[in-house]
């Protein structure tokens, strides 16, 4: 424990390198990615107001395999941010759970990876099909 506290972070002022550091950073990065995508997504969805020709032209962007890989990343970001958000609420509303923070951090990661396996399979095979087609 004490050696861990003395050890300096490899990234300058970043905190010690406990699991919590990575979940904090991931929460921030995924949140940032989601809101920046959301800004664009509200606009692309708003195009439905201009009818089928306009909207279908915009929606065709999603048939690009590269965009579809970004889409997989978006799904991953939403899921991680959600699971980690539940963890944050648990420790904030039940403060005694901070004793088990390491377990909660690892449980969140396991839940996330576990749910991403079938999702990556489903979305990944659609991307592979797109790549083979075109």
């Amino acid at each position: 424990m004490s050696t861990e506290i003395k050890r300096k972070g490899r990234f300058g002022p970043l905190y010690k390198g406990h699991e919590g550091q990575y979940s904090w950073l991931l929460h921030r990065v995924t949140g940032l990615a989601i809101i920046l995508f959301l800004f664009a997504h509200v606009v692309d969805t708003a195009v439905v107001g201009w009818g089928p020709d306009a909207y279908n032209r915009v929606a065709s962007v999603y048939h690009n395999p590269f965009i579809r890989m970004l889409e997989l990343g978006l799904v991953a970001a939403v899921l991680y941010h959600s699971f980690n958000g539940v963890k944050i609420m648990l420790i904030d509303f039940f403060p005694r759970l901070t004793r088990h923070i390491r377990f909660l951090d690892i449980a969140t990661a396991v839940l996330f990876v576990g749910s991403m396996i079938p999702i990556t399979w489903i979305m990944g095979s659609a991307i592979v099909e797109l790549l083979l087609e075109g």
């Binding site: 999603y62 899921l79 959600s82 958000g85 489903i122 979305m123």
Partner: peptide, 26 residues
Amino acid sequence: LFLAVGHVLIMHVFEEGVDRVDFAFI
């Protein structure tokens, strides 16, 4: 947690995901 995760699973993962999303779908 319910609205966005539900949205992402419905629109992007299950039942062909975004492949089936076009004007007629909306």
